[in-house]
């Protein structure tokens, strides 16, 4: 078994996280913001899995399963909100227009 490239995995995770963060900060479309959030969560999950492999510990994978569940529920809620907004007749998915907390 070859040595596990822990540093490479961390680098990849940091890269993924930065992409996700940049997406959240830059994109105005709500769907893309949700996708960017999922990228960030996956980056965190990757760190857990890598750490579990590095120290031969199963709890890293357990944490990743939890993050997976979290990401799924978060996406479901987020998509439901978007659908709801759309059903109310909002013409765009621009996050910056939804700043009034009113229907």
């Amino acid at each position: 078994m070859t040595a596990f490239p822990f540093n490479a995995a961390l680098l990849l995770a940091a890269l993924l996280f930065s992409i996700g963060l940049a997406g959240v900060l830059v994109r105005r479309n709500l769907v893309f913001m949700l996708m960017s959030l999922d990228i960030m969560l996956n980056a965190a999950g990757l760190v857990f899995v890598a750490a579990g492999a590095r120290w031969q510990d199963a709890s890293g994978q357990v944490m990743f399963l939890m993050i997976l569940a979290l990401a799924a529920s978060e996406t479901a809620v987020g998509l439901a909100i978007i659908l709801c907004l759309h059903a109310h007749g909002r013409p765009s998915l621009d996050a910056d227009t939804g700043n009034l907390l009113r229907g």
Binding site: V24, L25, V26, R28, M33, A95, D96, G98, N99, L100
Partner: peptide
């Protein structure tokens, strides 16, 4: 406090 989510994230 401008109400824009992206700013809050920032």
């Amino acid at each position: 406090q401008n109400g824009r989510v992206r700013w809050y994230a920032g």
